[in-house]
């Protein structure tokens, strides 16, 4: 149990009569890259909102980084990072100012912010644009910066909500390299995507269909179980 950073049991969210997330039960180990797959509207975003503590669950329990998602939100929020499908950087602030801002709201000290900023800019080789407004930086770079900023405070888990939508394949590949680096650092990565080919980058995959978790396992296990040659086929079989 102790190396599990997410434990969810019968987690459910209802909006009126509509059940967006229907009794999902799963766990995620530390350092794992966990793929959270499903079509648009399958309940992925709702599930992420519950796990990140911005939406309370209707029933069921879940612990993230050891904290109850409904009762221990403050502690929970300090220990997670988040990057959404929409852009998470401020366009009218420079690269450095964005980093400083996120460092600031996560309560890092001035010294920590300076060191982390240096490291981040060094790692992404962006020292030439550190004082450039984000609005003038190309999209592919912004995505990578957004991810690096989301893990600036070295969270236990980072939630990525469709981080690669609308990005070209090369940038997507580079983006996944950053995800691997983070995982090697011990950061658990919880990533949603609707690109089925991205599933093969994940250690384990779950598949949401209409609010229910229809399958969970490694790529191999799923392909074997559903007798499919790729995730697209698994998805089609499950969705039917």
């Amino acid at each position: 149990m102790d190396n599990k950073v997410i434990v969810a049991k019968d987690l459910t969210k209802k909006f009126g009569n509509f059940t967006a997330v229907d009794h999902i039960t799963f766990d995620v180990k530390q350092g794992e890259i966990f793929g959270f797959l499903g079509a648009n509207g399958a309940g992925k975003t709702t599930a992420i909102k519950m796990l990140t503590g911005i939406l309370s669950s209707t029933s069921g329990i879940a612990k993230v980084a050891g904290y109850d998602i409904n009762k221990e939100r403050n502690e929970l929020k300090k220990n997670i990072g988040y990057m959404s499908q929409k852009f998470s950087l401020y366009e009218d602030l420079t690269l450095k100012e964005n980093i400083r801002f996120y460092g600031g709201i996560y309560g890092l000290t001035k010294k920590q912010i300076v060191t982390k900023t240096g490291e981040l800019i060094e790692r992404l080789r962006l020292s030439h644009i550190e004082n450039t407004l984000i609005s003038e930086i190309p999209l592919g770079w912004k995505q990578k910066i957004a991810f690096s900023v989301a893990i600036l405070h070295h969270p236990k888990i980072v939630f990525l909500d469709e981080p690669t939508s609308g990005v070209d394949p090369i940038t997507r590949r580079q983006f996944w390299n950053l995800i691997y680096e983070a995982a090697e650092d011990g950061i658990t990565v919880f990533v949603t995507t609707h690109y089925m080919d991205e599933a093969e980058y994940c250690d384990r995959i779950s598949m949401m269909v209409q609010g229910k978790m229809k399958a969970i396992g490694s790529l191999h296990e799923l392909l074997e179980k559903y007798n499919a040659k790729d995730m697209d086929e698994v998805f089609l079989k499950l969705a039917r």
Binding site: I54, K77, K86, F87, L89, Y106, G107, F159
Partner: peptide, 14 residues
């Protein structure tokens, strides 16, 4: 509109 509100809500800021 820009989606930064979500980031703020996920952050420890109350």
């Amino acid at each position: 509109e820009l989606g930064t509100m979500e980031i703020l809500l996920v952050s420890p800021l109350k």
